[in-house]
Design a protein around this nucleic acid. Structure first.
Lengths: 351, 351
DNA sequence: ATGAAAGCGCTAACAC
DNA sequence: GTGTTAGCGCTTTCAT
């Protein structure tokens, strides 16, 4: 395999063999009508015989359109980003785009410009920034975005006028979770949040806070602990929270993995779930249904998020193509509460 | 943003502004020595001022080298493929490669040729086939690979002479898990395997079988049930197995997610783990340490697998470049047993 | 219906 | 040191 050296078959080879000019070959491969049927067939035969494949590179160069999208992601080892990417690839394939992938070494990666330059150098038609907002990792864009040569869609961040953004309503998710626990009669509801540097973590927390306040209940700082999304830190955060807020009868955890850590801690310390402690997670991992007890959670379809991103960027690319004025647009997607045993199940036996 | 229409800045613009030829600009951006310091500075200034970025497309075209790797994956919604991709992106970044990503709609996807053609049309320097072997999804390659224009590395498949393959030793993993259970005194050890169409599933099963046979014990068909890697089917497979093999005191489950299903079933039916049933999983998900009880598992570093793939393909690309004869090579990586409570912990209290 | 010439943005080979 | 010419593989005028 890997027959080194052998030169690529080009349009010239085909033209020579078929005894036509390169333009005629070009017409054939682009399915232009103005080619005599027999010429077309002759060319097609040669193409087949030489197994000629047009160079997408050369085409992109001349057409100034690559049908390639740049995708920037981070944390592919985690479920969320991977599922989003999954949605992106599916939709991209459907719409005939190929993807250039860049993964940031970490969420707070600074050298945004370097990444974008590489993508632009490769003539991407548009960019999907699929990195969640964390820390000031949006900072660099504020100056970059004026006059940016291709459309760019951001995922999962707060609204900014003029930017194209697609995001789940994390605040709503937090409210749904908390209101569910309130409906079950809980009054002392704690929260384990993700890193406060993350927009999503802050939004989910805000949902918890406002739901509590709306019920006339406190959502004090002492009722909230912070973890880094991992089960290990979920467990530790809960241990702290349990000490500083012993009255707590329910906890809303900002993701399923940390919630798993909470369940683990509960088992180890004889805390019964949901009798002593009701738990609601966030994400809706398929596995959460098989935790013990099965975990109530806020489901958001992250694959769908990726699909939407591609659809929107594709739209924007066409719009730019047509030289229309691209309108900024923010799309909010809604998470859904999935009730299972860890929170006491559906509301049949309210406290 | 997205300033439509404005033309790309090219080397010509820079040349004109700097009052030099395009060649000189080319020399500057390629850091050739033979440019007068002041000329260089003048050019650099113009580059800066116009924020000129060389077109990687044009470069690839002329150099016949794109510094781009094609990556084909499938099932990014699952941890394994996503982690592998994570390793791939990290190493690719390190070695200065950009990635073109293709995700197959499913593992048994047939139209391999279409995928490869798209990658080749975009002049990738090499391809990483990161789709696990399942069904006959290697079939198409047997004819394609003679005379394939670029090097290609396969992940996770059985050995084939002449192919470049990097894979974990799943057979070894199956043996490690089973021998661990045997060492704990278990004699009736069941197995829940992945889909028999998957090479990995068959290898893990073979590890179980041979370990059992080596201990003079049976590994009958009735002692094995099949699932599709999901927790849901893990639970169901275990339910079946439990009925048809009631003597079973231990089970080796081919992945952690299915093992979670087993644990769930055990809780629901009052089966104590590990007292009544010892469980060992496979994969080594971080979450497995927080299952209840914490899950013993066979860890394989799938990110590392991706790293290796990039290293190897990069080597092969250089080799082809240097017109050396590329040698086929198979790399076996070794999984490790991680012992936790679900299998009775480290061997301190053998039966 | 087909071909010739020009050029996308860049670099290699040779001048001078 | 620097410019000229040619050409990577393709498409787009504009002839014929």
């Amino acid at each position: 395999m890997a027959a080194a050296g052998r030169r690529r078959v080009t349009i010239k080879h085909v033209a020579r063999e078929a005894l036509v000019s390169t333009q005629t070959v070009s017409r054939v491969i682009n399915e232009r009508p103005d080619v005599a049927p027999e010429t077309r067939q002759r060319v097609l035969d040669v193409i087949e015989r030489l197994s000629y494949k047009p160079s997408a590179l050369a085409r992109s160069l001349i057409r100034q359109r690559s049908h390639t999208l740049g995708v920037v992601t981070a944390g592919l080892q985690y479920m969320g980003p991977a599922r989003t990417l999954n949605g992106i690839t599916a939709k991209a394939e459907e719409l005939g785009y190929t993807l250039l992938l860049e993964e940031l070494a970490d969420f707070a990666y600074r050298d945004v410009e370097h990444i974008l330059d590489n993508l632009l150098a490769r003539q991407v038609d548009g960019i999907i920034w699929a990195v969640q907002e964390a820390g000031d990792n949006r900072e660099a864009f504020t100056t970059l975005l004026d006059d940016f040569p291709v459309p760019i869609v951001f995922l999962t961040m707060h609204e900014v006028p003029g930017w194209h953004i697609i995001t789940f309503d994390n605040y709503l998710g937090g409210r749904l979770a908390t209101e569910h626990l309130l409906a079950h009669g809980h009054r002392c509801i704690g929260h384990i949040m993700g890193p406060a540097t993350w927009w999503e973590a802050r939004e989910r927390r805000r949902g918890w806070e406002e739901a509590m306040h709306a019920a006339g209940l406190p959502a004090a700082d002492g009722h909230c602990a912070q973890g880094n999304w991992s089960s290990a830190q979920g467990e530790q955060a809960f241990a702290r929270l349990h000490q500083q807020f012993p009255e707590m009868t329910a906890v809303f955890v900002a993701n399923d993995q940390m919630a798993l850590g909470v369940l683990n801690h509960a088992h180890r310390h004889g805390i019964r779930v949901p009798e002593d402690l009701a738990v609601v997670g966030f994400d809706g991992l398929p596995e959460a249904a098989y935790f013990w007890p099965p975990l109530s959670t806020v489901y958001h379809n992250q694959s769908e998020l990726g699909c939407r991103a591609v659809s929107q960027i594709a739209d924007l690319v066409e719009v730019v193509e047509a030289a229309e004025a691209p309108r900024a647009q923010v799309t909010w997607l809604q998470p859904e509460l999935v009730v299972r045993a860890s929170s006491g199940g559906p509301l049949s036996n309210p406290a």
